[in-house]
């Protein structure tokens, strides 16, 4: 059974959009527009959900967790071309400098971008009185992702558009007693 959650949907949406705005405008000089919000609960998605992105597109997913009054994990699913563009912008490099096979550099850049996004999200939570600590970022690569959390009080999926390319933020969190 789901717990009642201390943060409203409006607040959560503001936290997600603010963290994306802040990181994309500062580090990538790009803007991203929120296109879709999916509310997940036991009633409508007991067995998890397919992400609102093309299942066949190769993706890279950055993930960072946070522990404290609120505990959770945030996934950022990004189409590989967008991940490559973001890496080039962050490092001031051309795609030809990086190379398609240089997974390490792109993984690291997306890991850091995820770290900054979750950091901004977490710092806003802290300003609301919820102190948390972050975990070290990790990276997944693949396609056709489906996340099925074991136990979670709240899950929201936010789909953004960044100049014609899509990415998704999957927020899973619960309040610790």
């Amino acid at each position: 059974m789901q717990q009642t959650f201390p943060i409203s949907d409006e607040e959560l949406e503001a936290l997600a959009t603010n963290s994306i705005d802040s990181v994309f405008s500062t580090m990538l000089e790009r803007s991203a527009i929120l296109k879709q919000v999916i509310k997940i609960d036991e009633a409508n998605h007991r067995e998890g959900i397919r992400l609102p992105i093309d299942a066949n597109t190769p993706m890279i997913a950055g993930t960072v967790g946070f522990l404290g009054n609120l505990t959770g994990i945030i996934y950022i699913f990004m189409e590989l071309p967008l991940a490559m563009e973001a890496t080039c912008k962050l490092l001031d490099m051309e795609e030809s400098d990086i190379g398609v096979e240089d997974h390490e550099l792109v993984n690291d850049a997306i890991g850091e971008l995820t770290n900054m996004i979750v950091g901004t999200f977490k710092n806003d939570l802290s300003n609301k009185g919820y102190e948390c600590r972050m975990t070290i970022p990790s990276i997944l690569r693949g396609s056709n992702f489906s996340i099925e959390p074991a136990e979670v009080a709240l899950r929201r999926i936010f789909k953004f558009d960044c100049e014609g390319r899509s990415f998704v933020i999957d927020v899973l969190m619960k309040e610790e007693n």
């Binding site: 770290n115 900054m116 901004t120 710092n123 802290s126 102190e131």
Partner: peptide, 22 residues
């Protein structure tokens, strides 16, 4: 990327010259 109030206070006590948030 860690800028919570508790964190900043703890680190300030140990002694840093400045703090830049990612």
């Amino acid at each position: 990327a860690e800028a919570g109030r508790e964190n900043v206070m703890k680190i300030a006590k140990i002694g840093v010259r400045d703090y830049i948030v990612k």
